[in-house]
């Protein structure tokens, strides 16, 4: 869901507007009980996705997962209630997700994160520290590839010892090494005088 390369008309709209529209649309979709209208809206949502020239390759895996779940929902709902209401429910969810994809694929990660921070900014009054939140988010992103590497390394090492199928033999070293990385990083931050506490008081 990376929208960095998208330059369509949707990408030019402010993130807050798209987010708000999606929210209103999602609520509105629950008020519609006719599958014909929902089908029209679904086609509309697909057209919007296509017109925004989003990178459709990114949608393949999420769509496969979503369609599988919706397939199961459709069959069980159809057996339990009527096939008509099953169709309504599945079309509604699919339409909602299509609109959500349209927003996510045309809004950069930075813009979305900034929007979330604005939405969450009242939390500042109950003691949340924006500098700490930014540090936490950026460190988490930075640590992801490192931890993936550590995870694969540990698994390989335990495989060589014949312990590849022992979840404990993989999880304990993974946790210990993660804690060590955290300690080293915290020490490095402190040694360089990193200080994100609020001094305004």
């Amino acid at each position: 869901m990376i929208a960095a390369q998208n330059t369509s008309y949707l990408a030019k709209l402010p993130a807050g507007l798209k987010f708000g529209a999606l929210l209103v649309l999602s609520i509105g979709l629950y008020l519609i009980g006719s599958w014909q209208i929902l089908l029209v809206l679904l086609i509309l949502s697909v057209l919007i996705l296509l017109s925004a020239r989003v990178n459709l390759r990114q949608l393949r895996m999420p769509l496969v997962t979503l369609l599988l779940i919706l397939g199961i929902v459709f069959v069980s709902l159809g057996i339990q209630t009527t096939w008509d209401s099953a169709l309504v429910s599945v079309l509604r969810l699919l339409t909602m997700c299509m609109f959500a994809y349209a927003v996510s694929l045309t809004t950069t990660f930075d813009a979305m994160l900034e929007l979330f921070q604005q939405v969450a900014s009242p939390l500042r009054h109950v003691g949340a520290n924006p500098a700490q939140i930014s540090l936490g988010l950026s460190l988490a992103i930075r640590f992801i590839p490192e931890l993936k590497r550590v995870y694969l390394e540990v698994r390989e090492a335990q495989h060589a010892r014949g312990l590849a199928n022992n979840p404990l033999a993989v999880a304990v070293p993974l946790v210990i090494r993660s804690l060590r990385i955290a300690e080293d990083t915290a020490e490095a931050l402190e040694a360089r005088g990193y200080d994100s506490a609020e001094h305004s008081k």
Partner: peptide, 10 residues
């Protein structure tokens, strides 16, 4: 914060 981040990454 560093501990929180490392477990999020995990």
């Amino acid at each position: 914060t560093v501990y929180v981040a490392i477990f999020a990454a995990m």
